[in-house]
């Protein structure tokens, strides 16, 4: 079972990462900064549990707050740009974060062993779960409780007025502004909220894998983060979940036996899905759940 628990863990934190991008996409912001917030959450919570010996719940919370603080800061300059320029600017932010951690060396001796971030050598021994007797079933349950809470929060958000405001900004900024919506508040709030979710995801990722380094937070992961909600569909929050299951569960794990051909098929399947279901996996008839989860028209 441990293997399947491991896959569920992967699907869990990738879903959170995708949801952080989903929140921004609702406001029309295509952000590649999510991986930067994810990295901040991973390193911050890892440092807190490994170096300071802080409880995982507190560490994840603080990591997410730090990530959301940086997201808040990024949110303001991001107001001035959109489209491809926003993509470039947020890639630059993620690269700054990645290179910061690439150079971060903060080693502390614990029980005769040096622990902490060690530049290009990475940050090892983030073993809070195993070292505190958490069984794989406990870890996966914990991750999925967080995922379900975030899914529910975003689902609920989409069914109240705030969700309509986010979508209104995403559909047409000028019209939204003409209706009295404060673009600054909406967009910066979405960026901050997305940063918070990505920060939690990063913390869970670091503690699940027990190791992070700068290579864990490349542009490829940023691309995945925005690909999940786009591939899954923005109609509702569950599209992101379906996309993560499709990519992480089926394409990456399910096709492992194909070796190098897996990567070819991986790309081909995504192209096919995007061609046949341009509005996302959520619209595939076999799911036919879109009506069930459809947001209420306000």
């Amino acid at each position: 079972m441990e293997y399947y628990f491991g896959i569920l863990q992967n699907i869990g934190f990738h879903t959170l990462l995708g949801l952080s991008a989903y929140l921004l996409l609702l406001t029309g912001q295509l952000s590649m900064a999510q991986v930067g917030f994810f990295a901040i959450g991973a390193y911050a919570s890892g440092i807190l549990t490994v170096i300071y010996g802080i409880n995982i719940f507190l560490a994840l919370g603080v990591g997410a707050i730090i990530a959301s603080f940086f997201a808040f800061l990024v949110g303001f300059p991001a107001l001035r740009i959109k489209g491809l320029m926003l993509v470039i600017a947020t890639i630059a932010f993620s690269e700054i974060v990645r290179l910061y951690f690439f150079n971060l060396r903060w080693l502390v001796e614990k029980d005769g062993v040096e622990v902490g971030p060690d530049g290009a050598q990475g940050f090892r021994e983030i073993r809070y779960f195993a070292a505190n007797g958490w069984e794989p079933s406990h870890i996966v349950s914990f991750i999925w409780i967080v995922v379900i809470l975030v899914l529910f929060a975003l689902w609920w958000l989409d069914r109240v007025k705030a969700g309509s405001v986010l979508r209104a900004v995403g559909e047409d900024e000028l019209a939204a502004q003409s209706s009295g919506i404060n673009l600054t508040v909406v967009k910066v709030s979405a960026m901050t909220g997305g940063g918070f979710i990505a920060g939690i995801a990063g913390g869970l990722y670091a503690h699940s894998t027990t190791y992070v380094d700068h290579n864990s937070f490349t542009i490829l992961l940023a691309t995945f983060a925005v690909a999940y909600p786009i591939l899954g569909g923005l109609k509702n929050v569950f599209g992101t979940l379906f996309a993560v299951i499709f990519i992480q569960g089926i394409l990456i794990e399910g096709l492992r036996f194909l070796g190098d051909y897996r990567n070819l098929l991986f790309g081909l399947l995504i192209i096919l899905v995007m061609n046949f279901y341009p509005k996302g996996l959520i619209n595939i008839p076999i799911f036919n759940w879109s009506k069930l989860f459809k947001r209420r028209d306000l």
């Binding site: 441990e2 990475g122 090892r124 070292a131 505190n132 958490w134």
Partner: peptide
């Protein structure tokens, strides 16, 4: 990099019942 990560999911000390690593 994979070794550094995957070694971390193994039990650190043999016989440590409080450590649930592989």
């Amino acid at each position: 990099g994979v070794a550094a990560a995957s070694f971390g999911v193994f039990q650190k000390k043999v016989g440590d019942s409080s450590d649930t690593g592989l």
